[in-house]
Amino acid sequence: MLLRLTVLGLFYAPLLAVAGPDHVTTLAASCAACHGTNGNSVGGTPVLAGLDASHFRKQMQDFKSGVRPSTVMQRHAKGLTDAEIDGLALFFSQQPRRPASLPTHPR
């Protein structure tokens, strides 16, 4: 078993250059259901990609405290730590804005 792991490690060596996504990247991906891949919404919700980090942080903290009334966003903001909100603010501020599209219907 040990030998097999070592051998696999060797074979996967090219992947070592590509680190797995970190905690915040994986958490941010969870926002995609409503805000699109990497924050590029197709519409109906704000585009988070390229959003100013301090603006993002302020909105999320206001959702969390209730200063900004909301339906669903308070559920998410209240469940996140301040460090996670800061991490998400930085992550989304660094995402390039790209046009998002809907999948096509088959004929």
Partner: peptide, 22 residues
């Protein structure tokens, strides 16, 4: 997907994942 990539890269997966459901 994140954990598989970490494993293939020889890293430990995120020790405390957090995600949302709406």
């Amino acid at each position: 997907a994140s954990a598989i990539l970490a494993t293939l890269a020889g890293q430990e997966p995120d020790p405390q994942p957090v995600f949302a459901n709406t």
